[in-house]
Design a protein around this nucleic acid. Structure first.
Lengths: 209, 209
DNA sequence: TTAATTTTTTGCGAAGTGGTACAAAATGAC
DNA sequence: GTCATTTTGTACCACTTCGCAAAAAATTAA
């Protein structure tokens, strides 16, 4: 990956680290409240270097989120689609989400999208679309999983697939928000467990366990 | 109410209108992205007048939210606690919430608290506390209602009161977020209906209808 | 009229905003 | 070495940010 001798002056930063540091700033401060000076400090890159490397503020944010998504998506999707037990799969899915909602230092930062650009989404159509897309992706995943569950007989044949998916998506939205408000991790985990259990019961799960 | 001859120069603005206009700006733009100039324009008050009347930016926001809350709380609480049918009560409760999440002109602005200060909550402890308090208030209301429902035999005696309340709160959080992403009203209403129906089914409602 | 009181208006200031131009520095290719 | 190339660092731009001081205006009380 990093095997590129290149030609000119070697860059003094690691793009991946820089984007991670930038995302940290966005998550802590929120989108608008994060200035280019903040990003410059956090990445240890001068502002012109930031521009040359990633583009303007919005582009920096998008690239940082994309990297985060790619890094965390696999575990979530595997939990959802490769775990045989629906119950355990959902618990792992939300467990992965909760893990991602905390920084390495344990700060409850919530979701880099839902929690960070919600404030700006109504005024800026580009950001609004970004938010809508993120929500739509989760909805899609959960709908697919619930449809599978119906086919596999894991839940009632006449279960409301879309309603159940929306109800589980709501848990994700709620976790993002509660993390943002400082709710400690064990409490989030308890909330997720209870929510999943109730959802499965409402779905007429084959084995209410 | 407005019967106060006062002494000095009469104020040229109506405080209630001004706060409503200020809240509109906050809701549209988000907290940080709303500048005092925006507020000054929207309220038609010069910046020093804003300061004299309401205080600094955060105080303006708080007073505007307080007014909004007082104006919308009654309908919500009546739906929740005075409607005999639990099912209908919850539907009306979330119906009132959805109504409040749209501006008079029909823009889906979401919640003036959840959708607006989520981004700032992690960095600013005062705002974080504000967000946590708002979440806690809804949790409390829903817990009380679900506890009543158990006592009245409207739902199963061994129902998970806290879990159900959190699950319904999650619907509120999700509605706020989806509104922010531009989801049209009928879709929000459908989501709310399905969510409530599933929650009641999970609660072992006496009459699943 | 005059004085007291309250609000509005004008204008300022120091700091921060996103974004960029341009020269200096560090490398590989020749 | 010398050149082409790429990144870095310094400095700057025009604009906006929040906040306030001080004067002007509009009213009631005496």
């Amino acid at each position: 990956m990093t095997a590129k001798p290149a030609r000119g002056r070697p860059r003094a930063y690691d793009p991946e680290e820089a984007l991670a540091a930038a995302l940290g700033e966005f998550r802590r401060r929120g989108y608008t409240a994060t200035s280019l000076d903040h990003l410059s400090d956090a990445t240890k890159m001068a502002r012109p270097s930031l521009y040359a490397a990633f583009g303007n503020k919005l582009e920096i944010y998008r690239k940082a989120v994309r990297q985060y998504s790619e890094q965390t998506a696999e575990r979530r999707q595997r939990a959802l689609f490769e775990e045989p037990s629906l119950d355990k799969g959902l618990e792992d899915y939300f467990g992965a989400i909760i893990d991602a909602y905390f920084s390495r230092e344990g700060e409850p930062l919530g979701c880099p999208v839902l929690s960070v650009i919600s404030g700006e989404a109504a005024a800026d159509p580009v950001i609004g679309a970004e938010l809508a897309a993120a929500i739509g992706r989760s909805d899609g995943l959960l709908q697919r999983r619930m449809a599978q569950a119906v086919e596999a007989g894991e839940i009632a044949a006449d279960a409301d697939v879309r309603g159940l998916a929306a109800m589980l998506a709501a848990l994700q939205h709620s976790l993002a928000l509660r993390a943002r408000a400082g709710t400690p991790r064990p409490e989030l985990q308890a909330i997720a467990r209870a929510h999943v259990a109730l959802a499965l019961r409402a779905a007429g799960a084959a084995r209410p366990n």
